[in-house]
Simulated assay, not measured.
Amino acid sequence: MGILRRALDALYLAGGVVAALFTLAILVIIVAQMIARWTGNVFPGATDYAGYCMAAASFFAFAYALNHGAHIRVSLLLNALGRHRVKGELWCFGMGAVISSYFAWYGVRGMFESLKWNDISQGLDKTPIWIPQISMAVGTVLLAIAFWDNLARLIMTGHHGMRSGAIETGTE
């Protein structure tokens, strides 16, 4: 189990690193667009590319953020459950796993449909839309894996894998 745990944690960390790189890419695109305007040039599609990077940064960060307690949670309700908190956690992680799996399925399916139909973005960039959709598909799959991972850990050990001090102590 140690190897699987390290692999999953590395996967979530990789998603966070990729999200950070896409955030830096947004900065680079914005600065390049500013320089292009100052020099009288045009950077066609810069706004579209920045938008794709924003979406990629968001989707890749979901699993990392979940495991670090950065998502909005229902901790007040869970704390009010007292001795039934674990049942509430099971329900929350179960619903999160099912819903994120649904989104992952349709994210991947939508990406392949865009590839199949050769959908092109409507912006100036004329990018095949399946390319930016890769980040949504991969990010939702990572999130679904993280939810199933936390659900399985909660069932087997009685504790989920979220590592936020506020969540662990119940003092959000």
Rank of each mutant, 00 (worst) to 15 (best):
G2I: 10
L4N: 11
R5I: 07
R5K: 14
A7N: 07
A7T: 13
L8Y: 03
L8N: 07
A10V: 08
Y12G: 00
Y12C: 00
L13H: 10
L13I: 10
L13N: 09
V17T: 10
V17R: 04
V17G: 01
V18G: 01
V18Y: 03
A19K: 01
A20I: 11
F22E: 06
L24G: 15
L27N: 06
V28L: 14
V28G: 06
Q33E: 15
I35F: 09
W38S: 12
T39A: 10
T39D: 11
T39H: 05
V42K: 11
F43A: 13
P44Q: 08
P44D: 06
T47H: 05
A50I: 02
A50C: 09
C53L: 12
M54C: 13
M54N: 14
A56Y: 00
A57L: 01
A57C: 01
F59C: 05
A63D: 09
Y64K: 02
A65C: 09
N67H: 14
N67G: 11
H68D: 04
G69M: 01
G69R: 02
A70H: 07
A70Y: 06
V74E: 11
V74R: 09
S75I: 05
S75F: 03
L77R: 08
G82S: 08
G82E: 06
H84Q: 13
K87I: 13
C92P: 02
C92M: 13
M95W: 02
M95Y: 01
V98L: 14
I99F: 14
S100P: 03
S100Q: 03
Y102W: 14
Y102A: 03
F103L: 09
A104C: 07
V108I: 09
G110E: 03
M111F: 05
M111W: 08
F112W: 15
F112D: 02
E113K: 11
E113N: 11
S114H: 08
S114V: 04
N118V: 03
Q122T: 12
G123D: 15
G123R: 08
T127I: 14
T127E: 14
I129N: 08
W130L: 01
I131C: 03
A137K: 00
A137P: 10
G139Y: 00
V141E: 02
L142G: 00
I145P: 06
F147S: 01
F147R: 02
F147A: 04
W148G: 05
D149L: 01
L151A: 06
R153H: 12
R153W: 13
T157S: 13
G158T: 09
G158I: 07
H160Q: 10
H160V: 11
R163Y: 07
R163F: 04
S164E: 11
S164M: 03
G165V: 04
G165E: 11
I167H: 15
T169M: 15
T169Y: 06
E172C: 04
